[in-house]
Nucleic acid binder design. Structure first.
Lengths: 137, 137
DNA sequence: TTACAAGTTTGAGCACGCTCTAAGTCAATA
DNA sequence: TATTGACTTAGAGCGTGCTCAAACTTGTAA
């Protein structure tokens, strides 16, 4: 029995490979309420559907950009509220958007600094090499 | 005795305020070798000089952009090598540069996604509001 | 039918990066 | 002289986010 329904199911391994989460982490996230309970096959194994997968991809993006678990839990809770949670969900995403803009600026400034230093090291290396060359003949 | 030398010294408090690190963290960083030992006044209090301060600002940028402590320790060790450490230092900074470029891309993609969702929520909110308005008269 | 691979659960363990505590020193002020 | 406040040290403690361990079930392949 390789397929359970319309053949759209993914095993936990497959989801792990596709999202970058470990299987441990996927189970952990389900445990702490970041996902609704994933449907199980008769043998107890999870099978993930398309909409589960898309939710996990969203979680991955949020997590990879530094959203704390507790905030993702709040977001998941708002999802369960349906209409009643829309404004809160928007507010939470707008908060994260602001965070990312700040993060992006810090990265830009640090990239500028790094490039200055790298250039400086490069010229220093050239100089040292030049001296060695002179010394060496 | 408010000033110790040319009046360029900073207390640990001042450095903390200026860099965003806590005084605890500044002492911790010194302990674990991220900074050379900071000179002390007769009473044992640290006084930070301009070059100490600049090094700490660099540490702050690296840390704020996600460089792990152990990598900063390697970088600090390379500083102590002088000329011999230049190429390694450049390589380490180039590694971090690459990391930041990836991070920046992840942020851009996530910002796109967030904006889509925020727009979607906004239109959803307008719709729900509209229905309430109709119902309410 | 025996072995193996892939999954399950609950709970413990761990790496990282601080953060705090306790006990003490010192200089300035009331 | 007593108190206050900012600092010192060494070491313990803690929050976050996984990550692993142990014991078990199930389905497939030899």
């Amino acid at each position: 029995m390789k397929e359970q329904g319309q053949g759209q199911e993914l095993t936990i391994q497959q989801v792990a490979e596709m999202t970058g989460f470990s299987v441990h982490t996927l189970r952990y996230y389900e445990r702490i309420g970041l996902m609704d309970p994933i449907p199980r096959a008769k043998n107890g194994h999870r099978f993930y559907q398309k909409n589960d997968f898309e939710w996990i991809v969203l979680l991955a993006r949020l997590r990879n950009t530094g959203m704390p678990i507790v905030q993702m839990q709040r977001f998941a809770a708002m999802m369960r509220l349906g209409d009643a949670g829309i404004s809160q969900r928007r507010a939470l995403l707008e908060d994260h958007e602001r965070m990312l803009l700040e993060q992006a600026q810090e990265i830009r400034q640090t990239l500028d600094l790094l490039r200055d230093k790298i250039d400086y090291y490069r010229s220093w290396e050239a100089e040292v090499k030049g001296e060695i060359h002179e010394k060496g003949g």
